[in-house]
Nucleic acid binder design. Structure first.
Length: 164
DNA sequence: GCCACCGGTGGC
DNA sequence: GCCACCGGTGGC
């Protein structure tokens, strides 16, 4: 069944055992609604960058079709977080990371720049380009999206469940 | 002095 | 009311 409405069918996940960063990448097929693991961050981001115009289907994953069993079950053995669709592809040399806060209140989005600096917001990107003008032609602020994913509360560990 | 982490808020 | 964004700071 279709887990979510509309376009929000892109996800990343925290693996179990208290991982704080999203480290499993998965997308939902628009036809059979099974989840397919995308082995690399880059592959995941490629799909995510154009998700609305070019929705994911199982056959886009090599040697995979809707007849195959799901790659991963949506359950609370991991915490699932759902990325927004159509986030620009991360510029080459940068790495986009999602870090869960203590208490699972929200995730922070960072870009790690090629020089190791961690960029936290658009103003940091501007500062980085100012200090490293060789990137002026390659990247612009619009290549970055710091929007955090939606945390799926039904997949939080029991210890983090919201008090009623 | 840096940076991981968190709190607050302005704009939608 | 939410959340993207930014400022502040405690611990190293």
């Amino acid at each position: 069944m279709n887990l979510l409405n509309g376009d929000d069918l892109i996800s990343s996940m925290l693996s179990g055992n208290g991982s704080k960063t999203a480290d499993i990448w998965s997308v939902q097929c628009g036809e059979c609604f099974k989840w397919r693991i995308i082995p690399t961050r880059e592959g995941f981001e490629e799909i995510r960058s154009n998700f609305t115009d070019d929705p994911f289907v199982c056959t886009k994953k090599p040697e995979t079709s809707c007849d195959d069993p799901t790659d991963i079950e949506y359950d609370n053995s991991r915490t699932w977080v759902i990325d927004k669709p159509n986030i620009p592809k991360t510029p080459s040399g940068f790495k986009r990371s999602l870090v869960m806060r203590k208490g699972f209140s929200k995730m922070d989005c960072y870009y790690d720049a090629p020089n190791g600096k961690r960029l936290r917001a658009p103003t940091d990107v501007v500062k980085f380009i100012d200090k490293n003008p060789e990137y002026k032609k390659e990247v612009s602020v619009s290549d970055f999206s710091f929007a955090g994913p939606k945390i799926m509360e039904d997949t939080l560990p029991a210890s983090a469940a919201k008090k009623v």
